[in-house]
Design a protein around this nucleic acid. Structure first.
Length: 270
DNA sequence: TATCTTGTTAATCG
DNA sequence: ACGATTAACAAGAT
């Protein structure tokens, strides 16, 4: 699951290893993930030199001499830097570079590879409406953003238009750190609870960020991330004792997805 | 076979 | 009007 820790690491790897390369051709096996028709997409990016990379939330922005290549890995996938003789079995797009290397892109389910003209980035709605990178916020900025908002905590944090980068995997531990129930209403949060939430977000995301992302995602060089299943505090640990109080961890339905909580440490009562 | 899963948008309901 | 909920997109594991 690419959330901020994985995306931030992939972006760094792209900066390290792809800047300076020139795209000579693109093989597109899944046209549906593009925002242009296959031919236009190929035409726009063929010959483009990769100049810079950055990210916002779950989107990777690759700046080329001919425009932007925007990638969203959806619910998971790989970006593998290799050569044409060693393509991974599964791939949906391949960018071939002039130095005989290539970047294979795979999406497990869905993902997007979009082209945006230079200077037109704000016209790309899916990325333009993203909120600020959640790890870039100061304590005060986060407080200003979340106070006066309505709705439930979990849906607020997962809505990328509010804050960008949190997904449904790391959020379990984030809320546990903050001792907050996912269905808490935002107006009911005290200043102290928002403060705990800020700290929980930093803690939950940075642990994985520093380990190169989750183990089930590969980096550009085909290597697994260092954040292991055991590194999750309560996520995916249904029935196991809460490390804090020993109460069995529960898996509960929260809207259309699931949440792992300690019912004792994260009560819904306000 | 039926159900679940990490993301995002759009449609619909209340 | 706004938030909550669902379906859809489509693929793999269990």
């Amino acid at each position: 699951m690419p959330e901020l820790p994985e995306i931030a690491n992939r972006t760094q790897e792209i900066k390290t290893s792809l800047i300076g390369k020139r795209i000579v051709s693109i093989n597109i096996l899944q046209p549906k993930c593009l925002n242009l028709d296959t031919e236009s997409f190929q035409k726009k990016l063929s010959g483009a030199a990769i100049q810079e990379a950055s990210y916002k939330g779950k989107w990777i922005f690759i700046e080329t001499s001919q425009g932007w290549l925007l990638l969203n890995m959806g619910m998971g996938g790989e970006l593998i830097l290799t050569d044409p003789d060693h393509l991974p079995e599964k791939h949906r797009l391949v960018f071939y570079f002039s130095d005989q290397t290539c970047l294979a892109v795979n999406f497990w389910w869905f993902g997007y590879a979009h082209f945006v003209e230079i200077g037109q980035l704000e016209m790309h709605e899916m990325s333009a409406r993203l909120g600020p990178n959640v790890l870039d916020l100061s304590h005060e900025e986060f407080y200003r953003l979340i106070s006066n908002r309505k709705g439930t905590l979990k849906s607020y944090l997962l809505n990328q238009g509010n804050v960008a980068g949190i997904g449904n995997a790391y959020i379990h531990d984030i809320l546990f750190f903050a001792k907050l129930h996912p269905m808490r209403s935002i107006p009911s949060l005290s200043i102290e609870e928002i403060s705990n939430l800020y700290v929980g977000i930093q803690k939950g995301l940075r642990m994985s960020l520093e380990k190169g992302g989750a183990f089930y995602e590969l980096n550009l060089y085909g290597k697994k991330g260092g954040f292991l299943m055991e590194d999750h505090i309560i996520a995916y640990r249904e029935e196991q004792p809460c490390p804090n109080c020993g109460t069995p961890i529960q898996k509960i339905k929260t809207g259309s997805n699931s949440s792992f909580i300690c019912p004792n440490c994260q009560p819904l009562s306000e």
